[in-house]
Write a protein that binds this DNA or RNA. Structure first.
Lengths: 333, 333
DNA sequence: TTTTGTTATGTTACAGCTAATATAATTTGA
DNA sequence: TCAAATTATATTAGCTGTAACATAACAAAA
């Protein structure tokens, strides 16, 4: 076993300077709390020993850690990188550390990750789901820290939700497609997590209202461009009359468009395709991708703001904060 | 101030069960260390109180933290999500926690993040850079934990590097383009971090060897599809004879291709375009993108394996582990 | 000078868990 | 049956920093 070198402690510094560690502690927190002479002496030794702070004792003896936990389903998913950017813009400014974890869309893994984050005495938690295991709910309750659920607002499980209405967003996009004349619209899903299912609900509702038949093509795999292409193939085989496709995200939509182009299927003439989230890639491509534009960074920012305000002890003002979405028609429908 | 609810401790459980907290500690670590009767009794109370472990005391008493730190420049960058996946596949299997931090390509931020990770007594560190501030080097030295530098192997700053040779990779791709007949190849850079500069070096070397003029078009902004399109515009204006483009990453390359398509510039006939890393998006698109395929997941995996082995006290076998790369010609050059 | 106020430093105690060691309880074996 | 071996539980001490309180040192005011 490699034994970590014994790192210098406050006591080590104190011994060299000839004071007690309390003085060093004060200096590190705010140098002006110590006399000018001391400041110099201590600074030299701190530098010399290369002191590295140790958070453990602080976590042990005090309630606040000045850190929050953030759980996202996946790091590969660009949607969440933007959410994270929003969160950190707020936490950094407020001097909070952000402990990031991902759970691969699994409730069980989410539970483990939350347990791990809580073991570091975080002051608050931002989740990306609104469905959790029993034990997760119990842990959160026991920890007694504020929690925000991000992204979807249709059925928050805990205290406060920030995001938009996935069902309505899907409903509106599909309605737009129907209004444009599409009749055989298929829904592309991947991984079938909660949000994918909510969008399916909105899709089904729109189809039903117009007396149209709802068809879903999906896979359990994580979505990707390649997968969009594969789902298109499957769709052409299973539902040859398809004239429209609504995808749970832009990755699938872009993959499907590429595949159409490869097969010589004209977009939007023969098939109209719409995605979800309005990522950069879809906006730059030819044809410009129709998509539901979601306020990802803002969701992160508002979530963090709400969380910090609650950590400060302020009460919940709005249990549900709806940040809305926009339908972008682009050129692909 | 919101006061976090006082979480149950081992003592609380012990009191209810009527034993000492040591017995509870043993049970939690390995239930079989405790008599069968106790196991049942304790399990009930643990469940009932919703016990959440507290890592602080453990960290404090200098035991191993069973956590490693991983620093990546950016979470938005898909390259690094794949590296992280590789790392976690190893650390999870070994029961290690991975503490993730990102530093936005800034040495100074890297320093802060490292300080933060070290304050949690991590057992090892994986970095994505081979250039660091003075203080970073000092801290790492003082902490006395093993460190791996990932991605580039041309000039490791600390102990051990895992990755490939960026200069050579760029050199080989550009040489391939030259061999195919391209003469006015421009290099697209973004953010001009260390790796971007290394690739530029390889590009310049290949151009020079063939008596060709090297031209770089770049921006300080983070790369994106949109940016690739913008750089293409700039290039057409500045270097109208351009017949080839080598990009520091696939995002720029894809953006450039889209822009060419929009402008009616034929690829690869009029302009050949090559990217770097071989991401999914480039492989599915039309035309299939030429790119340097890098073993990203493997870099993560090997880095983690090496780190864990060194945490166990094993010596460094190879200071530099070169995992190579492949030139994929695709259809875009 | 003495008193009071102010600033700088010191002292004490504590947070929760576990390694190491001690003791009690139980089983085994001759 | 009782000593020895084994197993189960208890006791003690320590990890590092800081809040809270105590004291010392010095300056200003009376």
């Amino acid at each position: 076993m490699m034994n970590k070198k014994k790192r210098p402690t406050l006591q080590d510094i104190a011994d060299r300077v000839g004071v007690t560690k309390m003085t060093i502690s004060r200096f590190l927190k705010d140098p002006s709390q110590v006399s000018a002479v001391m400041q110099e002496k201590i600074a030299v030794v701190v530098e010399e020993l290369g002191y590295i702070p140790n958070r453990a004792p602080d976590l042990l003896s005090r309630a606040k850690s000045n850190a929050i936990g953030v759980l996202v389903p996946s790091l590969t998913n660009q949607v969440f990188s933007e959410v994270i950017r929003g969160i950190e813009s707020v936490t950094e400014a407020a001097g909070y550390q952000t402990m990031l974890a991902h759970y691969g869309y699994s409730n069980k893994v989410e539970e483990q990750r939350i347990s791990y984050l809580l073991s570091y005495s975080i002051d608050g938690l931002i989740l990306s789901e609104s469905q959790h295991t029993e034990r997760t709910l119990k842990m959160i309750h026991t920890a007694g820290i504020p929690v925000i659920e991000m992204m979807d607002i249709t059925s928050p499980a805990i205290e406060q939700a920030v995001g938009f209405d996935n069902v309505d967003a899907a409903y509106r996009m599909v309605s737009t497609m129907i209004k444009k004349g599409y009749r055989h619209i298929v829904y592309f899903g991947a991984r079938m997590d909660v949000r994918t299912k909510l969008k399916q609900k909105g899709y089904a509702k729109a189809m039903q209202e117009h007396g149209l038949v709802a068809n879903t093509v999906f896979t359990e795999a994580a979505s990707s461009f390649t997968l969009g292409a594969a789902l298109l193939q499957e769709t052409l085989a299973k539902h040859p009359k398809t004239d429209g496709i609504f995808c749970t995200n832009d990755d699938l939509a872009i993959g499907a468009i590429f595949e159409c182009q490869r097969l010589g299927i004209s977009i939007p003439k023969q098939i109209g395709i719409a995605g979800f989230h309005g990522l950069d890639a879809g906006q730059i491509m030819q044809p410009n991708l129709a998509s539901v534009i979601t306020p990802r960074e803002k969701i992160g920012r508002v979530s963090a703001e709400q969380l910090l305000s609650r950590i400060k002890g302020e009460p919940i003002e709005d249990k549900i904060i709806d940040l809305g979405f926009n339908i972008h028609q682009g050129e692909s429908i």
